[in-house]
Structure formats: structure tokens, C-alpha cells
Design a protein around this nucleic acid. Sequence first.
DNA 1: TATTGTTATACTCTATAACTATA
DNA 2: TATAGTTATAGAGTATAACAATA
Lengths: 165, 165
Amino acid sequence: MSDHEIPVTVLDRLLEIGDLFERDMARAFAGTALTPARVRVLWVLRHLGPMTQHELADRLEVSARNVTGLVDALEASGHVRRTRHPTDRRAIVVALTDVADAQLERMQREHADLTATLLAAVEPADRAALQRGVDAIADRLRGLVAEAAGAAGRTADASPEGRTR
Amino acid sequence: MSDHEIPVTVLDRLLEIGDLFERDMARAFAGTALTPARVRVLWVLRHLGPMTQHELADRLEVSARNVTGLVDALEASGHVRRTRHPTDRRAIVVALTDVADAQLERMQREHADLTATLLAAVEPADRAALQRGVDAIADRLRGLVAEAAGAAGRTADASPEGRTR
DNA sequence: TATTGTTATACTCTATAACTATA
DNA sequence: TATAGTTATAGAGTATAACAATA
């Protein structure tokens, strides 16, 4: 119908893969208390151990308010506990429950299995180049995004209206 | 702190790339009426031409209600027009405005530039293998996701409670 | 004064269900 | 009866701003 055809390149495939993954995770968790955003919280706790809500907000790069809501939900579903901070009475330490930790261990195994399955679809001779390629792309993209965010931040500092609505 | 270290593999890198991309798009559109979900609507219209809201819902795999909201916002911001369907008086045809079409053309060029920049970070000798690899992974993943969704659908048909809350 | 977390408020994306107008 | 779109309602993720308790 429209003549704006575009070639499908590596980047498009990468975005498609990310999208498929996100959708599948949401589908897999349908009917449970878990969601992609809540699972991200659990992964951070699993990899880095118990931490305060502020530390969580920093790690996840979301607002403190958002963390309050996510932890509320995860506490209600039995995935995390809120405990007192040993020295700072303002702070709350969030920790995984044993049940959640066991569930994450299972998910980690499934993730490894999926990685193996997907890699099995790639010609053995192509695998090393594939790994080098995606590493290089991720590296470059990380740099570009940080640069763009920094430029936007400086612009906003110079002219605060730039940030408004 | 925690001893649950995991190796970073191809799949993790792919997910990181998708995430970086999504975040960067959201940041780039901050301060405008555009959002990732609305831009997806615009891309579908750009690639396939004007269509009814129901066709849009099918293409995007979201509910008709959701499309109403997205089109409301895009109409208010001047990116699309709602026009009467030539023969079906129930239906509405959604079309890009000239302004939006020009903006999408620019975005398409930027997307191509970004693809070129990222590919330039990959060793020339690795590029063909990279393209074959991500194509193979996307293919396999597409199959797995469709299979999982199908299995979940059949289970829900057999025992409707499976779908509840 | 600065920081941690919460309450208040608001917007976006998403869904299902009920309803209107038309096929 | 079935379909296209809207209204009503709701939950999740996100944000800023104001506030309480504590450092």
C-alpha cells in the first residue's frame, strides 16, 4: 500500500528480539503477582544483596516513589521483606524472601537454558563473531546514549524551560 | 555482596541493547507529545498507509480501547487525522498528517544513520556472521514465543480459571 | 539543612465490559 | 447477529511535589 519500504537490518532484529522477550516475560507472568518491573527489582536484590529503597531507586534509575510502590507489591506477594536499617532509623532495608530466592534460581537456570537454545540456532562458525559483534554494538550504543543524555541534561541546566511539559 | 554471579552472554547483551534503545527513545521524546507507544502507531501508518482503528489494533496487537486513546492523543498533537470510511459508516480511517510524515522521514534517516554507526563499531570480518546470527536467533525466538503463547492459550481454553487474576 | 520514605496527584499504557451506531 | 468505536472502570508503571521523621 505505502511505498516507504525499509530494509530490515541488524539493529531492527535486535529491537525485535528485545520486544519478543519483553512480551514473552509479561505473558509468562500473567496470572501471578509478578511483572517485568517487579522482576527487575528482584534481580537487583539477587545480584547485589539486600539494600535500602534509595539504593534500589538509584540502581533501577527510577524515582523513590516508584520503588515504594514496587516494594509494596512485592512485599504483599511475599517476595521481599522490609527490615529495619541497623544504624539509620530513617532507612528501610529490602531483602528477598527464601521463596523468592529459590524462584529466581529457577528463573536463572531457565534463562541459561534459553540462551543455549538460541545459540544452538546459530552456525557454530558464526558464534564467536556474533558475541564480538553484539558486545561491540552494546558498547558503542551505551556510549551514545550516555552522551545524548548528558547533552540533554546540560541543555536543561542551561535553559530549564527545555525540560517543561 | 551476593555470590550469585552470572556470565554475561549474547542474550543478555541483546536485552541490554533493546533496553538502551527504549530508554533513549523515551528520553529523546521527553517534552513532546510523542511516546514509544504513539510512535509505534505512526510507524505502522507510515509503512502500511491509512487504515481503520480496528486494523491498527490488530497490527499492534493491543485492544481497540487502547487504540482509541492513542489516536486521541496523536490527533490532538496534529500527527494523525480521523477521516470517514468511504463505505462503512461505523468505521474511522486514521491517516498521517503531512507534518507527521515529514517527521517520520527524518526519523527513518536517523535510524539508518544509527544503524550505520553501530555497525561501524563491528569488525568488518564479523559483520556477515553477526547478521546471520541475529537473524537465526530472532527466528528461533519467534517460534518459541508463538509456541509458548499457543500452549498458554490452549490451557486457558481447557481451564478458564487459569486466566483469572 | 539534607536525606529517607510516604502521601498526594497526575499521566501513559494497558485490559475487559457495557453500550451505540451501523452492517 | 456481528462489527467498529466509545464510555466506564481498573491496575501497573512512571513522575514531581509536599511532608514527616531522622541524620
